[in-house]
């Protein structure tokens, strides 16, 4: 099973912080997951409509949207990070 996490403004739009999904066989990378989530609809689809301000991590490492997925990863979607000092 694949765990999907949403953080900050992406979490607010998604209406949830976490979900677990069985990845369809046709989905082989992060962009495929995004397309599938958009087709599924609801909050996550709205949160992932515009990817300009969305970043992704796979298994807690920053990743690109062409990062491959096998179906048992932890994938996180979030806005660009803003930690640290002013």
């Amino acid at each position: 099973m694949l765990t999907i996490l949403y953080f900050a403004s992406v979490k607010e739009k998604a209406g949830r912080g976490e979900e677990t999904v069985r990845l369809p066989a046709a989905v082989t990378d992060v962009m495929g997951l995004v397309v599938w989530l958009r087709q599924r609809g609801g909050g996550p689809a709205a949160a992932l409509t515009d990817l300009a301000a969305v970043r992704v991590a796979v298994n807690q490492e920053h990743a690109r949207f062409d990062h491959p997925l096998s179906g048992d990863e932890e994938v996180a979607f979030f806005p660009p990070v803003t930690g640290g000092a002013p």
Partner: peptide, 18 residues
């Protein structure tokens, strides 16, 4: 580091852009 800041002002709360 994956941190996100939300600022509260009199106008409400908003997420800080990178």
């Amino acid at each position: 580091a994956p941190f996100w800041k939300a600022e509260e002002t009199a106008a409400g709360s908003r997420w800080v852009d990178a």
